[in-house]
Amino acid sequence: MSWKLFNLLLEASLMTIFVSTISILIGLVLAILLSAANLSGIRPLQWFSKFFISFFRGTPLLVQLLLLYNLLPVIGVQIPSLVTAIIGLSICTAAYQAENLRGGFEGVPTGLVESADMAGFTPVQTFFHIRVPIALRLTLPALINEAILILKASSLVSVVGLIELTRMAQNLVASTFMPLEIYASAGLIYLVINLVVATAGRQLERRLPGVGSK
């Protein structure tokens, strides 16, 4: 396999990294909102949050993407496949991240929340200034794990026509008939990206201060 082909794969992997990063960040924001809904004590919001998390964790991402990709034109929304891919991945990872965060929010020491109340924080202030930072720190390993899962899951957005690493590999296979070399190279690139993310994650965990004893 020539360097030219490998370079094309490398270029496409930038799209994989871009889509994954954006989706993880949007997913994180959505997950925090879902957690807020869950902690709000308002029944309908809690139901929505539970339903959302259960549904998107309970169905395959491929089915979600196919559904989204075909639903949008039917309801009159015309957007590029890049946006469809990001919406699909973000919604899916939001459900998983919200589930991860649930454990983090349970780990927030009650004393800190009570102190914030005493200090006159409104519930919203307590949520964003006390609960969220601590929950995020506690679930950092899970977040890094989720980032790796999404990097791998982003291979599925190839079915909605976005030219990322897997789709580029498919296209190259179709024109060169070298599936072994090309898919193995694509796999290698995914592996390297994931190793980098895992290593960076471990470094980040070590550098950041922990959340004292409970």
Binding site: K152, S158, A169, V173, Y183, G187, Y190, L191
Partner: peptide
């Protein structure tokens, strides 16, 4: 084990079926 866990299932599937 690390290679399988570090690559997407879709790529593994295509590698096996087409390669």
């Amino acid at each position: 084990i690390e290679v399988i866990r570090g690559t997407p299932f879709l790529v593994q599937l295509f590698l096996l079926y087409f390669g």
